[in-house]
Design a protein around this nucleic acid. Structure first.
Lengths: 123, 123
DNA sequence: ACCATTGTATTATGTGTTTACCACAGTGAT
DNA sequence: ATCACTGTGGTAAACACATAATACAATGGT
């Protein structure tokens, strides 16, 4: 998946969101080693310092941990990941729902929109 | 409604979103006069220059127009407002739906979440 | 022992955002 | 005519963000 950075938000925040999504969606397996700061920065077309900032924020959240001169790894704590996943889903749903209500849409209308724009799972 | 500005995005963009929502939700009636730049800035606890920037962007979108030394008004062009409203709803729904799918949620699960977090209309 | 690679830290520079402050021209009410 | 108010424009300063370019210490593999 590409990085798709936009100019309307600080890059380091977008990097945080992107990597966080990789982790909580399971795309990055718990305990697995991730690419180096320099390599990640290179792929995202971003300065190493900026990537470093994003990674250390994710560390504060407990989603990553560091082995000083060896590399960085996804946490093995499944609870942390699951919590992040749940709060992500809840927060986004609440925000979405609130905005649509404020627009004047009824609950039924909101559901209809989601029905329309959501694609069925490809089993 | 309060302004609720956060530090993770440029203020002028948040002001644009906020006022745009006031317009497309119908809270600000088409053709009606809005408060002066200075007054709006004061209420939002923001510098007049910043509010000015947001308003001129909304003007580019056709949602506002200016009478040079008289004040600013909501557009009377209902099509412009309705288009903005529809694209707002579609874009947000699409983005929400995509993110939830990426999280691994099925269409049915997404609908369930919306059901859970959406409140019934208060007739 | 050597060396590439790791995370980390520092300094400097450019850019964008926000703010404060000031000035100008046109309108409308008095 | 006067005056408060309107939108608009400019300048300067402070700050955060992003980048470039280095440097350093510790690890792992050779």
């Amino acid at each position: 998946m590409s990085w798709e950075l936009t100019a309307d938000r600080p890059i380091y925040l977008q990097l945080i969101d992107h990597i966080k999504m990789n982790i909580i969606s399971g795309e990055f397996a718990p305990g697995s080693k991730i690419l180096s700061v320099r390599e990640l920065a290179s792929r995202a077309c971003v300065n190493p310092n900026t990537m470093q900032r994003a990674l250390s924020e994710l560390e504060k959240l407990g989603l990553l941990y560091t082995q000083r001169t060896n590399g960085r790894f996804i946490t093995e704590n499944l609870d942390v990941i699951e919590n992040a996943r749940e709060s992500f889903a809840k927060n986004h749903t609440k925000k979405f729902s609130d905005r649509m209500s404020q627009l004047g849409l009824s609950k039924a209308q909101i559901i209809n929109l989601v029905e329309e724009f959501s694609e069925e799972d490809l089993q």
